[in-house]
Amino acid sequence: MSTTNLDFARRYFRAIEQGATGEALAAFFHPEVTQVEYPNRLVPAGATRDLRALLEGAERGQKVVASQRYEVRHTVEQGDSLALEVAWSATLKVPVGSLPAGGTMRASFGVFLTFREGRILSQHNYDCFEPF
């Protein structure tokens, strides 16, 4: 069965929604993956992460987020590159800013993925959070 990069990206987001960490999450990434998170309210200086840092971040996220949802609103695909506009929401385990534990944090994400050998080689995130 052939799969498209968009199908793969949707499975990746579903895995994150289901709390994937460790090897279950690593399976989506090429071993040489890099992720760039451009400056935003949560990460004011931005960040660049390799596979290890991505997996560590997923573990840390489990302590903050009770559940999360990714809604793909728009996509553009060209060759091994995929651009996605994503609506994200998360129910918090702990207070963040003015949001209480149990509150919902929301954001609009621009996510740009490149693929190599059927897995994510690079991910660039432009995360726009609603006020919190």
Rank of each mutant, 00 (worst) to 15 (best):
M1C: 03
M1S: 14
T4C: 04
T4S: 04
N5W: 03
N5I: 05
N5H: 08
D7E: 14
F8Y: 11
F8A: 11
A9M: 05
R10G: 12
R14I: 10
A15K: 07
A15H: 03
A15C: 01
I16F: 08
E17V: 04
E17P: 08
E17G: 05
Q18W: 01
G19D: 00
G19W: 01
T21I: 08
G22N: 07
G22H: 05
E23H: 13
E23V: 13
E23G: 10
A26C: 08
F28G: 01
F29R: 00
E32G: 11
V33N: 03
Q35L: 14
E37I: 15
Y38R: 14
Y38Q: 08
P39A: 03
P39E: 00
P39T: 07
N40R: 02
R41N: 15
P44C: 09
A45F: 11
A45V: 09
A45C: 03
G46M: 02
G46K: 01
T48Q: 01
D50S: 07
R52Q: 12
A53G: 10
E56M: 04
G57N: 01
A58F: 02
E59I: 02
E59W: 01
E59T: 07
E59L: 07
E59Q: 09
E59S: 03
K63C: 07
K63E: 13
K63S: 12
R69G: 11
R69P: 12
E71K: 13
V72T: 12
V72A: 08
R73L: 12
R73F: 07
H74G: 14
T75V: 12
V76D: 12
V76S: 14
E77D: 06
Q78A: 15
Q78R: 13
S81N: 09
L82R: 00
A83N: 02
L84K: 09
E85G: 09
A87R: 11
W88T: 10
S89G: 13
A90T: 07
T91P: 05
T91Y: 06
L92C: 10
K93T: 03
K93A: 13
G97D: 04
G97E: 02
P100W: 00
P100F: 05
A101E: 03
A101Y: 01
G102F: 03
G103C: 10
G103I: 00
T104K: 05
M105H: 03
G110V: 05
G110D: 06
G110Q: 05
V111A: 15
V111K: 08
V111N: 14
F112C: 10
T114K: 11
F115P: 11
F115C: 04
E117V: 00
G118T: 06
R119Q: 13
R119N: 05
I120M: 05
L121T: 09
S122I: 01
H124V: 12
N125A: 12
D127P: 06
E130L: 13
E130A: 15
F132I: 05
